[in-house]
Design a protein around this nucleic acid. Structure first.
Length: 237
DNA sequence: GCGACAG
DNA sequence: ATCTTGTCGC
């Protein structure tokens, strides 16, 4: 695989990412909807789940779809593996007016908290032209700022002089989440969104639902927890 | 040169 | 992410 070609492409696309200052760009309103995405893999098959809820906490629906991936997992080039299945699903939902509309997308992975400031959430935002944010369970960029044990503590993560995201302790004394803006949103708004979506568990509620549905899909269990949309041809990047 | 490295 | 045994807790 021509790694250099993808490193270049990532660098080019990273320059097109727009991160807004505080109180600019996407701002959620209670009635707006958030789309949250997760994927499970079996070999080249990708089992994708998409959850839609409003910001005032109203659950709308979780959907499931099957497609494939053809890019191996390489740390820091993860977006080329995961973004195509996600974009396939996003484009399908956008094209079909029968599906609920959504205003912002939450991705399981990083936004710009990435060595070339181009994680999967930024990739999805740029190619779908939508506001996105990333929420990951491990960090890619090292940080040495202190993170308190208390619930809702945060620590800024820097790449050189630039603040690229947060370590965020969603529950007392548990491993933090890593939150960063993806595209067309501010860091502060991204953190606020994740904060609002975390309830009793480490992960945000809609990502927990998406994760559960992706696992059901993978096992071939067609339950009432989600609406199955069938198998789709994966878009190419 | 070597290790570390989202999902 | 996936593979994988036993173990602990609700």
């Amino acid at each position: 695989m021509e790694i250099d070609k993808y490193l270049d492409l990532q660098q080019t696309w990273a320059n097109e990412i727009i991160i807004f200052p505080k109180n600019k760009g996407f701002q959620f309103q209670p009635t707006m909807n958030i789309l949250s995405l997760d994927v499970q893999y079996s070999d080249e098959m990708a089992y994708v789940a998409a959850d839609i809820q409003s910001f005032d906490g109203q659950f709308i629906q979780t959907f499931g779809m099957i497609t494939h991936t053809n890019f191996e997992y390489i740390p820091s080039l993860f977006c080329f593996r995961e973004a195509p299945p996600l974009l396939t699903f996003i484009q399908y939902l956008q094209k079909n007016k029968d599906f609920p509309p959504f205003d912002v997308i939450l991705v399981d992975g990083h936004g710009i908290a990435h060595h070339r400031k181009f994680g999967v959430a930024s990739c999805v935002g740029l190619l779908a032209n939508m506001p996105t944010l990333g929420c990951a369970k491990d960090t890619l960029v090292k940080y040495n700022t202190t993170l308190n044990i208390a619930k809702n503590s945060t620590a800024d993560i820097f790449l050189g002089d630039e603040m690229v995201g947060y370590a965020f302790r969603s529950q007392e004394n548990i491993k933090p989440l890593y939150v960063s803006a993806g595209h067309l949103i501010s860091q502060e708004e991204s953190l606020e969104i994740v904060k609002n979506l975390c309830k009793m568990y480490r992960n945000p509620e809609p990502l927990r639902r998406a994760d559960a549905v992706a696992r059901l899909l993978q096992k071939g269990e067609r339950t009432k927890e989600y609406i199955f949309l069938g198998e789709m041809e994966c878009v190419k990047i």
